[in-house]
Design a protein around this nucleic acid. Structure first.
Lengths: 139, 139
DNA sequence: ATAATTGCAAACACTTTGCACCTGT
DNA sequence: ACAGGTGCAAAGTGTTTGCAATTAT
């Protein structure tokens, strides 16, 4: 479940919470608040450290939150329904990325409502350059 | 050139610098440092305020920098050539549609900011069924 | 003249870090 | 026993804001 060496109460608490909310993007603040409200508070430092380790091991991803300031974390779901979302393919390394987030679902709705065009997710691939190949560093 | 009321030396300096580097994503730090090095320093507060006003007026965009922490700004190129937007092709009649609306531009930004993927508009085609072929009509 | 703008410094918000104490193995 | 983890509080970093002085109109 975790890649860290020791299995602690705090890690379990955090991981369980992320799993229970795997479809949501959660900021540290939100997680900390919810855990405190649940009677199982975890220190912010621990939270940041463990979340980063999850991102590092590839078990979670780190995106920017709605407020555009803070980071939002989310467990990575290994099993996905690929016909329900678009995909992006890197011109450079060939890696295929799944675009399953909330916002991208609204894109399909926008195109349907405003352009009267019904996207075929299975045939469409967005091409470009991914984080790893653009030299921008990354997760 | 600017939407603000007064035309000041500082705004001119900043705008000129952005224009000279319109293909780059620049952080406030970088801009401030370069301007200082050029002997035309501008205060950070002024920089942030003016950049935000440019973003607000639609003359520039604000993305996340490589360090994933700071904001990076870039002037928006007004000329609407086809490499600046996505296209949709109908599976049925083969018609090609241009997706040049505001919302779709924000999609590119979303994908860049949240998925760290830079879309190649010239290679990407969204497939699906258009209004004429699906008989759905609309706006 | 006067309303907008500037720039410093202080305030903010999110994140990281140092360190003494605690916990899992 | 002891390497790894926790959590507080302090430090860091990028951005915003209050305000007096300055500038454009």
């Amino acid at each position: 479940m975790q890649r860290s060496t020791y299995n602690t109460r705090q890690k379990q608490i955090i991981y369980d919470f992320l799993l229970k909310n795997k479809e949501r993007l959660l900021t540290c603040e939100e997680i900390a608040d919810c855990l405190k409200a649940s009677g199982t508070p975890v220190g912010k430092a621990t939270l940041y450290r463990y979340l980063d380790s999850l991102v590092c091991s590839g078990d979670a991803r780190k995106l920017t939150a709605e407020d555009k300031k803070s980071a939002a974390y989310q467990l990575l779901d290994k099993e996905m329904n690929c016909s329900s979302h678009l995909h992006m393919k890197c011109n450079c390394c060939g890696e295929l990325y799944h675009l399953g987030c909330e916002f991208m679902h609204s894109v399909g709705e926008h195109i349907l409502n405003h352009h009267q065009f019904e996207i075929d997710n299975s045939k469409t691939v967005i091409y470009g350059v991914c984080k790893n190949c653009s030299g921008k560093g990354g997760i």
